[in-house]
Amino acid sequence: MLSRTAENLFWLSRYVERAENMARLIDVAMRMSSLPHGPVDGPDEWHSAIVAAGCERSFYAKHERASAETVIDHLARDLDNPSSILACLETARQNGRSVRTALTVDMWEAVNATWLEMRRLSKDEFTPARVGRVLDRVKERSLLFGGAVAATMLRSDAYWFSRLGTFVERADNTARILDVKFHVLLPQAEPVGGSIDYYQWTAILRSVSALRAYHWVYRDRIKPWLVAELLILRPEMPRSLMSCLGEISRQLEVLGQAYGTRGECHRLAGELEARLRFGRIDAIFQTGLHEFLTDFIDKSTVLGDEIGRHYLF
């Protein structure tokens, strides 16, 4: 298979996934900002969403301060921000378009129709009051794309590269969403473990569609370290880092067997997976959750690069 085809499939899936996760990130910021506020000294939820999205530089080049309006516009609509939802969908479509014949009709339809629909939306659809509908739609279309990949694609290397893109991006994005909590400071008089803290963790769970899963797994009230454990270490949670790394390792292994070659990307994926498989949440909290997540995000970037290097993207 041409490296360019693999590269385009990989990035097609990554950008669809990124669009979905950007929607989830905005969602979590909206939920947090709707919580009752005391006096807050530090940056608020909207700033934290920008930081977690890794869009600080592009955002503050354009806007003076983070507000619901400016952040939603930047993360959802602004085509100058390559990670905005619309930019992701456009890039996804461009990647799909140049390997059109490697896609199934359903995959192409999912990507093409989404882009055509989204680019027609007026600016009014992105106001804080209305953007919820758009975010739901983006998640829905991304799930449709994932379904099309799962249900219609031949299980050849094209499929494995598509899936790799999805899970490399998803791992990165789950880590970012979890990290939002670090950047959002509690109001001064609020204790850790108090009700605001509780609602913030709940918001994170909701944004990754994991609130119910949490209750099923733990049958307990919301506790920060359990939320973190669910999203980092639990293999049965489909957006957890563990779950994503498990998928990545498996896909790389299939490719490794098919091609008879393995490289740094295989080793690194194995290392990351092992750290998660044998990791303990109390140990992670001891070294610092934020430090752990930052390190993970850096390593997953390297992993993405190494995959590209090994398969000559």
Binding site: M1, L2, S3, R4, T101, D157, L255, L312
Partner: peptide
């Protein structure tokens, strides 16, 4: 179906870049 960037010339031989090398 290749584009220019998929092909490279080394030692006067044309190669295409594939996921197998």
């Amino acid at each position: 179906l290749v584009e220019g960037a998929d092909l490279i010339v080394e030692d006067l031989v044309v190669f295409m870049r594939t996921t197998r090398g």
